[in-house]
Write a protein that binds this DNA or RNA. Structure first.
Lengths: 337, 337
DNA sequence: AGTTAGCACTCTTGACCTGAGAGTGCTAAT
DNA sequence: ATTAGCACTCTCAGGTCAAGAGTGCTAACT
């Protein structure tokens, strides 16, 4: 257990270290007023905090740095969240309402906004539905022997695919074909599309149905994850060393492909999880912290996260991640997902 | 003017420097055989090359480094292009044919491929048409009070836009509306759409036409430029220093937004321009070289480029940029438009 | 008991130096 | 014109050193 004063000191160490990125000395804490004791007393307390594992020493005589455990305690017991200001809300909501394109543009913008809000990397995954269903398919003539298939899924995805035509066609024919296809396949998932496609369709149309089934069930992870703000995060002093920087970039690049949020997102909706450094099972993420929140409704769930060095402004980050997640859920519902 | 031997020495300096990234000494050149003279002779020649401005000295006693002028001479007179191998062609073409999505996915993949081919940043712009025309518009029901507009332009763009509905609609109604709109507006450019929209349309449809006109003429540069491979380029030794690296990242980030290829693309189709360091009018690009090529047909023109440090493998880069540009033009034609 | 002044001790950091090594530039000989 | 030879210059890595920042401990104080 920890005394009140020790807790307060730990809090000050974290607060200080988060802004300066330099080990915090006992003297620096005295200057901070609020504590009417001498630096020697604080040294004693710090030594005890270190014994319990809440702070560390880079070397014998440097200030103290919070350990992962220390951050954990800070997040759980010490921190008072820095609420999202009204003006922040206003600009965010304004920007998000600005978007006119589809889901993808929207997700990527959200990641960008969140990133700039907290000064770290933001990750947003596309909401996943149990299994997507085709909502509508359209065919557009591109040239005499190619056409473009545009499919809209009920999870908000819109996918295009260029198709070679077996025989010259006109937009008229394509419209008719799309109409037939829609009547037969709308509202169906991949399996049902495959099943329905065997009956009363000509060869071209069967091919088309096959392509549609593929698109509906397609789940390329690369397409599912939006990572933004890497260049913002790189300005953090932890990356002052080129190797660390390159490693970080590579790390995030790789993670874009095998979304690392999955395991973290089992919490209930609305809850925001914080995973600090070594708490992450994934080696290679041991120097990073993540703040993750789920968003969405009953039938579609995605995740919003901020990723950065363990020295992160949790006070600011946590409420902002939660806010953005909530906002997304809300907007998603408005659009009818 | 320059003697034959001086030219050959300059060539060797460039070749050597491009791979080692370290100033080239007279001794290193002697080891290179091909020259049956002593290092002293080479030193004399190097001094003369320096007097003409083809190489520089970082400091009194280090090897020589090619100057921008030296690279220029190298590119113009000395270099023999390193042709694109058959297997390279095969893998590139294979990968490009793999793409199933629309133009955007395709352009971004092209940039990625080119980048990995030459180990530097690749930039691809979307082909511009004189003025785009609407090819087809579709409306899809998202929820009871929102619908999704999907518009296909004749320059290959496909754009989505979420629309709030004034009154509840069904897919049926939307189809009819789309049909009317298409009959009226297909094949028209933004101005023509605006003109046509005044007549015989109800209020909702006029709004829709307005949105379509916007989409058709939309030219957000951010959407027009695909930059890939920044992380590859960062492994170059010129960025061993963090500041240089951050500056480079910022530079490229900024440029994504105000496409810097425009002025460079006045050459005729098929020609490949090389812009070396200080030759670039743009301050801030003075340490970079660009290899740019136009691609496209009569009615749609874009640019492909590779951007990297002046110490660039021009031998490899130039033919590869040219190849990719040609390939894109070809594929673009196949798809029609 | 807890607090604190004082001081020895440790470790970093930056500055300065120094010697080795790499290259050049020049001179004089070929 | 070429080249051997050598003095000269500059970098670079390593080492030393003093200053400074902090701690940890002890002994005195409240």
């Amino acid at each position: 257990m920890i005394t009140e004063r020790q807790a307060s000191i730990l809090g000050m160490v974290v607060d200080e270290y988060v802004v300066t990125a330099e080990p915090v000395s006992s003297r620096a804490l005295v200057g901070q007023r609020r504590l009417d004791v001498s630096s020697a007393t604080i040294r004693n307390e710090l030594a005890r905090l270190e014994a319990v594992g809440y702070v560390t020493h880079p070397y014998t005589s440097a200030g103290r740095v919070p350990s992962d455990q220390g951050y954990r305690f800070y997040v759980e017991a010490l921190m008072s969240e820095d609420p999202v200001g009204l003006d922040e809300r206003r600009t965010v909501e304004h920007q998000l309402h600005q978007v006119s394109g589809g889901l993808d543009e929207w997700l990527s913008l959200t990641a960008m906004i969140l990133s700039s809000l907290v000064g770290n990397v933001a990750v947003v995954t596309r909401p996943r539905t149990r299994s997507a269903r085709l909502r509508n398919a359209q065919l557009v003539e591109l040239s005499r022997d190619t056409s473009l298939l545009v499919a809209v899924m009920d999870d908000g995805r819109v996918r295009q695919r260029i198709l070679p035509a077996t025989a010259p066609t006109t937009q008229e024919t394509l419209n008719e074909r799309a109409h037939r296809i829609n009547r037969l396949l709308d509202g169906k998932d991949a399996a049902e599309i495959r099943a329905a496609a065997t009956d009363n369709l000509d060869a071209d149309e069967r091919d088309l149905a096959g392509v549609l089934a593929e698109i509906v069930e397609e789940q390329r992870i690369a397409e599912e994850t939006f990572v933004e703000g890497v260049n913002i995060a790189l300005r953090q002093p932890e990356f002052a060393d080129v190797d660390r920087m390159l490693e970080a970039v590579g790390q995030l690049q790789a993670y874009r492909l095998r979304s690392f949020l999955e395991p973290a997102v089992d919490g209930s909706l609305g809850s925001t999880r914080v995973i600090i450094g070594s708490e992450n099972a994934d080696t290679g993420m041991q120097d990073w912290s993540m703040v993750v929140s789920r968003y969405g409704g009953e039938d579609a769930v995605g995740a919003v996260a901020v990723v950065g060095p363990t020295r992160m402004a949790y006070q600011r980050t946590i409420p902002r991640v939660r806010y953005v997640a909530a906002l997304m859920g809300q907007l998603l519902q408005e659009v009818g997902r």
